[in-house]
Design a binder for these strands. Structure first.
Lengths: 353, 353
DNA sequence: CGACAGACTTCTAGCGCTGTAAATTCTCAG
DNA sequence: CTGAGAATTTACAGCGCTAGAAGTCTGTCG
């Protein structure tokens, strides 16, 4: 069964290709009778337009690349889902090509140069290793929007949440719960990402505002961004005598690992140690105890990013715009509300765009 | 900065387009001096071949679609990662277009017809709602391989693990641990998937082999495939007096939800209730207690599926081949080894292809 | 009755690249 | 120095589709 082409339909209907094309695109200036006749031919032959041919003629593929470190990280898979929903909602007909960089600089380079091949109309990239300069140089004229708090040249658009503010809010919430020795867990042992850096800055800011101790011992790093490594790291810290009563985690993975390490040692959560995660992944509500977590507004993030990307694709060529979307501290069992009345405000803490 | 085209390079080097094309593709029959001259022109102009033009000329896009219900389900995101690694390993240069069907029939139809647009060379689909007949009718001549134990027409290739056997192994393992009231949790309340159906069949088979009670009360269904819904369902079952000492879960999500429900009620795991999940997702090792789980060999699954798909793309046109890949029961704290000596065998229980 | 809008259709170039076939150049024996 | 055959290179026709120019056919009005 060979593919049906536009020309086949045209011949079948006894009209020109352009007329068929006009019908396919619901162009004006096509008489009703003609439209019907062509449509019948389309249906009879089961014609489906070939995307490649169209792309070559129009210069658009209808594909957007979404590139990040690893789909297996729940934050990214949830983000991918959100972006794909947002793309569908705009009705622009864009589809997503997911690319993984593995969080390495080679991976990020590969993704950038592959996308230059003209397969995609634009790209959403969450970088972590590349320098701003390299991003600026490499992306060429591919419409692009950066996601997250990684490196971002001033010439390129980006969307993120205010990580420093969010970490401060999380840390102060633990202080509100009366915690005085608050640790941070989950930053990379080597090659710390800017994500970790900003969250640690916010954590320190929170401690300082409340006059709490800032100690190197209270920074628990991990080999990799997995709950498994976090469990090992927190366990090792506890075993070597590090004591804390509050834990700000770089992400929910680290938090889940921490829960495991605490459980193993019969440390009660939140009574002995209160824990706050980050990303508010789906599992956060079913861990035991359930996880309080910083919840970036990924829906807004996806929408804003797509809007900016659409403008770039339309030809907008101004300086890079840097947008901040809001976040929320979702309170659950691992670090519950501190004061019934005051809490609602904190829970909805937002930093607006 | 307008794109550099093949023709620009040809003019710059003073040769024909075809010669440039030959150099780009490292074709034989290009003299060394010519190769150098052209390469210099390519470098000077910074030429990058345009994928779309090539696709139109060759009929291949280098893109494969991987379609399943939802990236947010860890099994699928881990599968996507595995497939993308396997694709990279073959060196075929294929990239993945991820598509979500949302587990609905409309979603599956949309994915099938969208992929007909010629954007992808082939498709890996994990169907759950469509009938075999509809799959057979709709996929047209798009090379396709089905994943998983859903519907599959005899005319189309598919890869899966033996779900019935695996569920039997899991159930019998609980019996080996001395459990006598073993429940099953996690199948959909309405529109039960063939995945759930087969796992329940295997569960029943296991019970019958050991002469254990098969009761409708011991089938705990959920509204949706999320750990949250599973926690509610298991909690509700416990609260209405259903008693069990072993739990076979449709997937790790259900298992994680079950852990939560049991914890909330101070039921000890595995002493009071032993739990076995399914899929062996990354979190299985850091839940508390860690989860025993049926681990499909997704690496083999990805490899076999890609191999078959590659053959189809090459033009193979035989009858559908149905392949079985192996699985393993990974034992952790939630349902540990029963007999130190006997267990290794069971742990590596496999049903080979 | 003829000229002329206005409405609709057809024509005709490409988009960037590749495969085939034809043309050219090169090699080397005779 | 010539011609056959091999080795390279070029010409050219699309792949399937779109968009703008150009053509055709109404119906209307002077």
């Amino acid at each position: 069964m060979a593919r049906v082409r536009l020309q086949d339909v045209a011949e079948h209907a006894g009209v020109s290709m352009k007329t068929v094309s006009n019908v396919v695109h619901s162009h004006p200036n096509v008489s009703e009778s003609m439209r019907e006749r062509v449509q019948r031919a389309i249906d009879e032959l089961g014609y489906r337009p070939n995307a490649i041919g169209r792309r070559l003629a129009t210069g658009r593929t209808g594909l957007l690349a979404l590139a990040f470190a690893d789909v297996r990280l729940p934050y990214f898979s949830e983000l991918a889902n959100e972006v794909s929903k947002a793309a569908a909602a705009t009705g622009s007909g864009y589809r997503l090509l997911l690319e993984e960089t593995e969080g390495t600089i080679e991976g990020e380079r590969a993704v950038l140069s592959a996308s230059e091949a003209g397969l995609v109309d634009g790209m959403l990239l969450q970088p972590s290793q590349m320098s701003s300069r390299e991003i600026a140089e490499r992306h060429g004229d591919l419409p692009m929007v950066l996601l997250g708090e990684g490196p971002a040249p001033l010439t390129v658009d980006r969307v993120m949440i205010d990580n420093v503010a969010a970490a401060t809010v999380a840390t102060e919430h633990l202080a509100n719960l009366g915690r005085t020795r608050i640790a941070f867990v989950g930053h990379e042992k080597s090659a710390m990402s800017s994500t970790s850096r900003q969250r640690i800055m916010g954590y320190q800011e929170g401690l300082e505002r409340r006059g709490l101790p800032v100690e190197h011992d209270l920074l628990i790093d991990t080999n990799a961004i997995t709950s498994h490594d976090a469990a090992l790291a927190v366990g090792a810290a506890l075993d070597r005598g590090v004591r804390f009563d509050g834990l700000v985690c770089r992400d929910d993975l680290a938090a889940i690992g921490a829960l495991r390490a605490l459980h193993e040692r019969n440390i009660s959560i939140p009574d002995d140690v209160a824990v706050i995660g980050w990303d508010n992944i789906a599992f956060a509500s079913t861990t035991f105890p359930s996880l309080s977590s910083v919840a970036p507004n990924t829906q807004a993030l996806a929408r804003v990013a797509l809007d900016m990307l659409a403008e770039r694709i339309e030809g907008f060529d101004g300086i890079g715009r840097h947008r901040i979307v809001d976040f929320e501290l979702v309170l659950r069992e691992s670090a519950p509300a501190a004061f019934p009345t005051e809490e609602p405000d904190l829970a909805a803490a937002t930093v607006s765009a």
